[in-house]
Structures are given as C-alpha cells and as structure tokens.
Amino acid sequence: SFQQEMLEKAKELFQLCDKEEKGFITKRDMQRLQNELPLTPEQLEDVFDNLDQDNNGYLTPLEFSMGLGKFIGVEVLS
C-alpha cells in the first residue's frame, strides 16, 4: 500500500540521518547533516524540534515517519 511504501521510504531516510545505526537520531546527528544538505544548523535544529514530538531529545523511526507523513499529508497510525 501507499502507507507501507512511505514507511519504507521513511526508513531509508532515517538511515541517512542515523549513520551509526543507533536506532534513533539525536540533535547532533541532525546537525551533522549540514555538510550534506542545503540547510543551516538552525534549520536542522528546527526540523529536529518539529519532529521530536515528545521532546525527549531523540527521534525514533516512528516520530521520523510521522514527520514524513505530515509532510506528505498522510496520517501514519502507530
């Protein structure tokens, strides 16, 4: 299904951020992406805060997927 496809895509994108394969993304991981993405550290921090819904300082694959879903306009149910 489309949702399944999106979750797969989210997983791939998640792995681009989680280079050490920790299973979560920290703000530091995010800021490291400034070398690869055309975003400023402030923007990356903004993205992180936006995705970190429970404000625990870690982005889980689910939070990441939900962020991608919000971006694409699809609700991803847990």
């Binding site: 994108l13 400023t40 903004d46 936006n50 962020g67």
Partner: peptide, 29 residues
C-alpha cells in the same frame, strides 16, 4: 528575505529537509 529566522517557517523547513533527503537518496545511490 534571505535572513529568514528559523522557526517562522517550520513547515517550509521540514519540506526542504525531506526534499533534500529524498533527492540525496535518489541522486546518490
């Protein structure tokens, strides 16, 4: 305005982020 403050356009930044990641994914296998 190039001096856009982070936080004012969260959704735009989010879109920019995901678009960049997506193009990175497809651009460099």
């Amino acid at each position: 305005d190039p001096n856009m403050k982070a936080g004012t356009t969260s959704e735009g930044v989010l879109a920019n982020f995901f678009n960049s990641l997506l193009s990175k994914k497809t651009g460099t296998p």
